[in-house]
Simulated scan of single mutants.
Amino acid sequence: MELLTLENLGTLVMLIFLQAVLGFDNLLYISIESQRAPIADQARVRRWGILIAIALRIILLFVMIQLLQTLSQTLFSLNFEGIITGEFTFATLVFLFGGGFIMYTAVKEIAHLLAMDHLGHGVESKQRRSAASVIAMIVFMNLIFSFDSILSAIAITTVFPILAIAILLSGLAMLLLADTVSEFIEKNRMYEVLGLMVLLIVGVVLLGEGGHQAHMKLFGYEVLAMSKSTFYFSIVVLFVVQVLQTGYRRKLEAVRAHRRTQTSPEHVSNGPAQ
């Protein structure tokens, strides 16, 4: 078959890797958002949210391939010289709206974690929502995350079956990893803040990408897109800092515990006679 050429197979491998890398932040969001659902429904919420999102991503892929030229056409322009200028397409609006919404979500969750009434209550202090509303939010955010990865994939090839297979395989990987990532975050609560910071950076990346594609200028300064290498370097640095902080905190706690033992009344009274 013409579909199973060496070139298409090489493209498929590249697309699977691309979907896996770009899908990391999506998986992180799913893991954090699913904790809003009732505890008994969280695994089901993650599973159905990912399955519905995969189906919609394939539909979105097909529509985007058919309307590729339309997506790049300018819908409107802003020309307030010295304040804001730019030419906006459907794609740039999705990036700008999606980036802003992701940043809002991350900041709201970080503020919730820092709120005084959250301290000491753990996950139970979170406001629970129905399973259906959490699934809807996961699907909606998945589509926003998908837009960038689908556009990147279409830039590599427009062969629909190859693109669809890459999406299906990346979705399968998300299904397999979703529970593991959620359990890890649940057991290591300090990494939830790290995950939210990653989402915050993702929002900044999407805003920069949308502004750059729209040739936007704010107060005379051109909006530049963050390079993918800078983005992933920032994520690696965040994880390294978190791991070092965790190790250092445990070492400090061990030293303090040892000092408390050495200065406790029982240890002093049972010490050698002078």
Rank of each mutant, 00 (worst) to 15 (best):
T5Y: 01
T5C: 02
L6K: 09
G10Q: 13
T11E: 10
L12N: 09
V13Y: 15
V13F: 15
I16S: 13
F17I: 15
A20H: 07
L27E: 05
L28F: 13
Y29Q: 06
I32C: 01
I32D: 01
S34Q: 03
P38S: 03
D41M: 06
D41N: 07
V45T: 15
R46H: 05
G49F: 07
G49T: 07
I50D: 14
I50L: 08
I54W: 01
I54P: 07
I58W: 02
I59M: 06
L60M: 10
V63I: 05
M64A: 05
Q66M: 01
L68A: 05
T70P: 01
S72V: 03
L78Q: 04
E81K: 15
G82K: 06
G82R: 04
G100P: 06
I102S: 05
V107H: 07
K108P: 05
K108E: 09
M116R: 14
M116L: 09
M116V: 10
D117S: 14
H118K: 15
L119E: 12
Q127Y: 03
Q127N: 07
R128F: 05
A131T: 02
A131R: 06
M141C: 06
I144S: 04
F145E: 10
S146G: 13
F147H: 13
F147L: 04
S149C: 00
I150A: 00
T157L: 02
V159P: 11
V159T: 15
F160K: 07
P161E: 11
I162P: 14
L168S: 08
L168G: 12
S170V: 01
L176I: 08
L176S: 11
A178L: 04
A178R: 04
T180W: 12
V181Q: 06
E186V: 01
N188D: 02
N188P: 09
E192T: 13
L199G: 14
L206E: 06
H212Q: 01
K217E: 14
L218M: 13
L218N: 02
G220L: 01
Y221K: 07
V223W: 04
M226I: 06
K228Y: 04
F231I: 04
Y232S: 06
F233T: 14
F233K: 07
I235T: 09
V236D: 08
L238I: 13
V240M: 12
V241D: 14
V243M: 08
L244G: 11
E253V: 01
V255K: 15
T261W: 02
T261A: 07
T263K: 07
S264R: 09
V268K: 12
V268I: 07
S269M: 10
G271Q: 09
P272A: 12
P272N: 07
Q274P: 15
